[in-house]
Structures are given as structure tokens and as C-alpha cells.
Design a protein around this nucleic acid. Structure first.
Lengths: 219, 219
DNA sequence: TATACTTTTTAGATATGGCTAAAAAAAACA
DNA sequence: TGTTTTTTTTAGCCATATCTAAAAAGTATA
């Protein structure tokens, strides 16, 4: 069994490592975890001793297969609980992250498998992120920021990059949610904003910042 | 906000204090918490400094109003989660305690009020124990061990004294659950066992130990 | 390539919550 | 009431996880 801190570090390292691809800086972890870099060094040494990360001093860390397993289990729990909170308890999608941060550390494999069943085996959380199965596998849809889509093309919202409350509230206000289809009418070059049409109905202008945080698929 | 340890100590002290009536021994707390008495002394001092218990050295502790509030909030959460696990996730009543011990420490008042609503405001957990409301009030049914009921009388099972798994499995096997009506046909003096009839249907003999752990009401 | 800057690690704290062993106080009893 | 036993507390540890300040290593640049 791993401590709450260990689980949180592994989750952060996994996120920063682009799904286990790249090695990760101490400072980046410190920023993600909101701790001092010195604390990160200590914890990294500890995780390394437990073979959860590969680590050479001053060279950054790579998450190990074992570490990735643990990170994915925590992510699975986080996302399942988010579905529960939204679908069953009627939370709004901008309210669930903090609570799921706590619930993701509950230790009980049977609880998670029963919760999964109760929720009818969801494949995505309320923000569109995929829910890994018990073995850590999940479907990857090729998603890119809306800001990358060319003028005249169409796409569908599949996830949000940042699920901070203010951004999600903004999306609600303008009528964008997971599954919304978007047509790019015009890209405004000077500020990166875009004029778009939602579900072939409603047109609006969206800022570059917002477009960068909205993940879409063109498939 | 209080730490996991503080919450567990307060819960233990509340339980041992007979709902805040009596003062509690250091050794009793140590046994309940499965820690060394020295650790209890330390924690008591800490809780006392925070005014969660009244404490004089060598004189035992009394839980304060503030401490009782916290204990009851934790108990409320524990019992609501137990209902969730049994009613929604189809856990068996002997499997839920350990998981609820973890879930009871999740901090989110709105989560609990939404869970309460989702469960349709239950008044009792799966073991028959009352669920305090948000202000810490709960209905008290006068309950006594089955072992205290006289020959020839009838009663109804309202709770179990000890929810250890082996005992609950035994109850299932013989067909006793919360709500079962029991008639005492005969009390066997020499070993304290009893011959009883369940729901006016099935007769069996129950040991003194089992009868002491089964709480009933004659009202 | 030597120097300056940035990143990372180490050293030495702090706080929490636990332990054992010994001392002190209270309780039991002869 | 004095002595023994039990209970409780204190003293001095340990481990986890954090911090700041300083040192060390790596990177960039003149």
C-alpha cells in the first residue's frame, strides 16, 4: 500500500510525463504539487527506492511500469468518482474535482469494481477524459485544442484541457459541453480568437485562451 | 479542519463515553484505538488544548460539546456511506465497515447532504444504528440485548451490538436480520442460551453470546 | 572555456503521530 | 495506613512529509 503523498506524486509525475513518455523535472513536479523543490527531491528518492520511478540525480525522473500502474489506478478511481458525483448526486461538472481528489485515495478494489458496475461501466469522466480499465488500458481519441483547427473545418468537443471552475462555468454559459459540434467560421489572426457555430445553431466568438483549453476531435 | 487521527480519537471517546455521559479511561481508549496508552496521553493533551475534550491529568477525559459535534458528524458520514454501500452497490452488511471507516473522513458538507438526499434520508444504517442529522440529533429507540428479554415475551431486532463479520454471517445463516420479530419460547438457565421463534415461523436455539449481541426493542 | 545563471540536492529544521521504558500518581488491599 | 498493583504520564526515541537556506551540479553565454 502506498501513502496518500506517494500516490499524489505518482499521479503528478504521470501527468507531466505525457502518459509515461518523457522524463520530468523536479521543478515541474514542485509546481504541480505546490511544494518546494527540496521536498520533491526527497520524495523522488523514496519513490526510486521503491522502484516506482527511475531516477538519476540531476537528471529528472521517469515513471516506471509499476509507478504508472499505480498512477492509472488512482486516475481510474478519480474519474469514476467524478461520474458518480455528476450522474448520481447531481453535482455540476465544475464542482467535482476537489471531492474526487479525496475519494481517489480510498483503498478497496471491490468498491471500485462495484462502483464501476453501478455507473454502468462509463468510458469517460464528466470532463471527457477516458477512464482506464482495471488493467490501466483506455481508449485514446486523437484530440487537439480547438485553437489548432483550421478555418472552415468542423469538429466535436471531447474534453477540456483544464477543468478549473471558472472555465467550466464559462462553457456552460455559452452553451458548450462534451459532445457539442463546432464549425470554425473564421480565425481572427491578430488575437487568436475564433468565430464558431455550435451544433449548427448558435454562433459566437471564443478567445484564444478558451480555444486552447477546449479539446476536440475531427475524426 | 481536524486530522484523521483526531477524528478517530473523538469517535472512540464518544463511543466509550456512552454518548457523552461518562468520563473515559486512557487505557480504554488505547484498546479501542489499538495504540499504546502513551500515544493516547499525547493525543488527549492535544485534543484538550483544542477544547475538544475536558481533561485533567490522571482523571480521564470527558468529550466536550464541540468534540461531540465532530464525533457525530463523522458517525453520520460513516453510517450514510454504509447505507450507500449496501443499498446502491449491493455490498453485504458484513462487508461495509472497513470501507466506511475510510469514507467517513471525506471532507465535504455538500457531498454528505447530496448523499443523504440520494439515499432518501435514511434514519438507520444497515446494522440498525441511527444516523444523526446534520445537527447531531438522532432518534433513540430503547434497545436491550435479547439476552435480557424474559421467557414468553416478544420483541423485534433493531440493531446488532457488534458488527463483526462472523456474527453477521451467522445471523444471515439462521435468518435473523434487522426487523425480524422474535418470541422467546424458553430460557435455558445453565448456559444462558434461548429457544426462540422468528417471525412466528421458524424456531431455533441461540447461544448466550449471540443473544447478548442482538439488540431488540419490546415497544 | 571560464563565468554566470538555473536547477537540483543536501543539511538541518519543524510538526504530526506513533513507539518503549521509566517515573509518577492513583487505586486496591492487607 | 503503609505497601503493592494498576493506571497514566513523561522522556526520549523513530518515521513521514514538509520547509528554508546553502551547497553542488548542470546549462548557458560572453
Amino acid at each position: 500500500m502506498y501513502s496518500l503523498s506517494e500516490e499524489n506524486y505518482l499521479k503528478a509525475i504521470y501527468h507531466l510525463s505525457n502518459h509515461g513518455q518523457d522524463s520530468v523535472n523536479t521543478n515541474a513536479i514542485a509546481e504541480e504539487m505546490k511544494t518546494a523543490p527540496a521536498s520533491v527531491s526527497d520524495m523522488i528518492r523514496k519513490l526510486s527506492k521503491k522502484k516506482l520511478v527511475d531516477y538519476q540525480k540531476y537528471r529528472g525522473v521517469n515513471i516506471s511500469t509499476k509507478g504508472k500502474d499505480i498512477a492509472l489506478k488512482v486516475i481510474r478511481k478519480h474519474r469514476l468518482w467524478e461520474v458518480f458525483l455528476v450522474e448520481k448526486l447531481n453535482f455540476h461538472w465544475d464542482e467535482v474535482h476537489e471531492i474526487a481528489e479525496q475519494l481517489e485515495h480510498i483503498q478497496s478494489p471491490v468498491l471500485i469494481s462495484k462502483l464501476d458496475e453501478f455507473l454502468d461501466f462509463p468510458k469517460h469522466d464528466p470532463h471527457g477524459d477516458p477512464i482506464p480499465d482495471d488493467d490501466g488500458n483506455f481508449a485514446t481519441v486523437k484530440k487537439e485544442p480547438l485553437s489548432e483547427i483550421e478555418e472552415g473545418k468542423s469538429c466535436k468537443v471531447v474534453a477540456v484541457n483544464d477543468s478549473n471552475s471558472a472555465f467550466l462555468k464559462y462553457l456552460d454559459k455559452v452553451g458548450i459541453s462534451i459532445g457539442t459540434s463546432i464549425h470554425i467560421n473564421e480565425r481572427i489572426e491578430f488575437d487568436g480568437s475564433m468565430e464558431i457555430t455550435l451544433n449548427k445553431e448558435k454562433s459566437l466568438t471564443i478567445s484564444q485562451i478558451a480555444a486552447q483549453n477546449l479539446l476536440v476531435t475531427t475524426a
